[in-house]
Computed example of a mutant assay.
Amino acid sequence: MLYFDHAATTPPYDSVIDAVGEVMGRHFGNPSSIHRLGIDAERLTAKARDVVAGLLRTSADEIAFTSGGTESNNLAILGTAREYASRGKHVITTEIEHASVYECFRYLERSGFEVTYVKPDRSGIVRADDVLAAVRDDTILVSVMHVNNEIGTIQPIGRIGRALRDKRRVLFHVDAVQSVGKLPVYPGELGIDLLSASGHKIRGPKGIGLLYKRKGVSLEPILLGGGQESGLRSGTENVPAIVGLAKAFRLTMENREQSAARMAGLRKRLLARLENVPGLVFNGSAADSDMAPHIVNVSAPGIKSEVIVHALEESGIYISTKSACSSGEDRPSRVLLAMGADRQTASSGIRFSLSAEHTPEQIDKLAEAVEAAMEKLRRFR
C-alpha cells in the first residue's frame, strides 16, 4: 500500500500513540476536579499548552484546545461575528476556503451579515491588494487560509496581516490547518489575531485542535457549559488527545525545515514525472515559492476524479479528490471553478499529498501507476 493522502489525515507517530494510551490509563482524572487525579490531569494540560505556545511563539493563555480544525474555524468566525456585530456586519473571506470556513460565512449571510468573497487568480492565489481593497468602515473580520487544502497554493497572509494591524477594528483569522508543520507559522509576526490548527494533520490524534486567540480579542463562545478553556470552550478537556497533540506538534516542528525540504524535492520529482502523462492538467502556480511542499493537484478533463481515485486504489495507491471533507460529493470542485476552470476540469481534479517519509522510488511508482491508469481509462472513455 502507498498512501498519498496526507492532506486528508496523517498516520500518528508511534510515540504519540504511546503517550495517548499512557495518559488514558494513568491520568484519567477530570482536569476540573480538585483531588490529586484531577490536579495531575490539569498539570499535563498546562504543560501541553506551554509546549504548543512556545512552538508558535505565543503565550500559553492565547491557546485554547478544541475538537479540531472545524471547531476552531467555527469558533473564530462565529465567535467574532457575534461578539463584534455592534461594530459592523461586514466580513471578508475568499472563494477558495475550506468548507468549515466557507459554510460559516454562508451561515452569516443568512443571519444578516454582508460577506465579500474575494476571487483568486487562475493559479489559485488571492491577491493581498484585493483583500485589503474590500475592507470598509463596518468590516469586523477578514478570514484567509494560509495553504489551500485542495491545490496547495500559499496565500499572502503576512502581507494581509501586517496591513490590517493599522485597522484595529478588523480582526484577521487564518486557517493554518495545512500549513502548520510545513511552513513557518508565527501568529504574532504575521499580524494574525486568530489562527486554527488541527492535530491529525501533523501526525497527532484526531478529535483535537487548537485556536490561537491574541490577547485583547474577545469571542462569544459557541459551546456553553462549565466554562473550560478560560470560558472560551466549555466541555471536559480531552487530556490524552491534548498531550498527543503537543507531542506531535513538538516532533513535527523540530523537523519542519528538513521535512519541508525533502517534501519539496519529492513534489518536484512527481511533477516532472506527471508532465509526461498525456491528458493531465496541473492546477496551481508554476512557481515553487507559491506552493506548499506537500500538495500536487492535477485534472484529467473528461474523466471523473472518483474514477481515477478508484483505479489507483486497485493498485494499492490512495489519493484524494478535492478536500476529504467533500470528496464524496458528485459535483465539480468549488475551488477549481473559482480559479476559472471549466466544469470538465473542475470535475476531474485529483490531489496527491506527500509526507517526508516517502521515498523517490515510491514517487516513481505513483507516477507509473497514474500513467497506467490514465492510459486504461482513456481507452474506455
Rank of each mutant, 00 (worst) to 15 (best):
A260T: 12
A372K: 13
E22D: 10
M374H: 07
C104S: 14
R110C: 02
A246P: 03
Y13E: 05
R273A: 15
V243H: 05
G158L: 13
A81Y: 06
T66S: 05
A176V: 09
D14E: 15
P11H: 10
E103V: 01
R351Q: 09
V135R: 08
M145Y: 05
A372N: 13
A346C: 08
I242G: 07
G29M: 12
L274S: 08
A76W: 01
D137P: 00
A346R: 03
G29P: 10
K182L: 13
A373E: 00
L210S: 08
Q178W: 04
D342V: 03
F4M: 12
L354Q: 03
D121V: 06
I34C: 03
G244V: 05
A248P: 10
L270Q: 07
K322G: 11
V185F: 06
L171N: 08
H35C: 06
L56P: 06
D290Y: 04
S315N: 07
S348V: 01
S218N: 13
A48Q: 08
L266G: 08
L354F: 05
S67K: 11
K304R: 15
K322W: 00
S285A: 11
A19L: 14
S100H: 14
T9N: 10
D193I: 09
R379G: 00
G204P: 08
H98G: 11
S86K: 11
E313A: 15
L183W: 11
V20M: 12
N148H: 10
G235K: 02
R110E: 14
R351D: 01
V307Q: 11
D61V: 04
